[in-house]
Design a protein around this nucleic acid. Sequence first.
DNA 1: ATGGTGGCCCGGCCA
Length: 260
Amino acid sequence: METTTLASWNVNSLNVRLPHLEEWLKLRQPDIVGLQETKLEDPRFPDSVLAGLGYRSVFCGQKTYNGVAILSRRPIDEISCVMGIPGFEDEQKRVIAATVGDLRIVNLYVVNGQDVGTEKYDYKLRWLDAVHDWLAEELKSHPKMVVMGDFNIAPDDRDVHDPAVWNENHILTSTAERAALRRLMDLGLHDSFRLHNEEGGVFSWWDYRAAGFRRNLGLRIDLCLVSDALREHCTAAEIDREPRTWERPSDHTPAMVTLG
DNA sequence: ATGGTGGCCCGGCCA
């Protein structure tokens, strides 16, 4: 199979982070990129700028909050694009899917959930249920699938800086959230990072507050899941910390996977 | 971490 590099990056406003994205695309030259938290309405999406760097774009955004996009150096089958979870009424722009060659790319900005027990937490769990049922269907017609995104769930204790704080009752690590992620993965979706790395303390997000990055007080919540059919083709996975070191960074850094 | 910073549109929401 042709070598393909994919990345997921929550840019926390593409308006602010476009220079970072341009710089990083030139540096790493990924084939396919999923962006989250673009925070841009569609008419303002910088597709011509990205085209200048060789990337086609499909996007689904809104003002102020949320917003997702897929960029690709190869043709995107626009007919096959899906915006939102089919059958799940949702004002929030958190889901986009597209086909590139024989790869199905699903890009998710999973609900944060605020705090365990809140209305937003319930919405997160309902939303993840709907994603589960949709992906179960989607996998039947698209076995070669990459499900990437900001999952807003740290898979296990290796993925948090302090498991005493980030425990079974805490948002992003609670029992129900981890069970929902497990249920998604039980569809035959594998955390590419864990196919190649066993160590803890490798993070993709650090809070802007309390100098989180400098002290490496982070979480690994940005994931690239590969389907059963791609598992043996997954040759590498890493988190690229570099853009987090740049001036005025996103609080997230890209999670990458290589298929070959 | 009842705190802290950052992005949005304009003091409060969301992360």
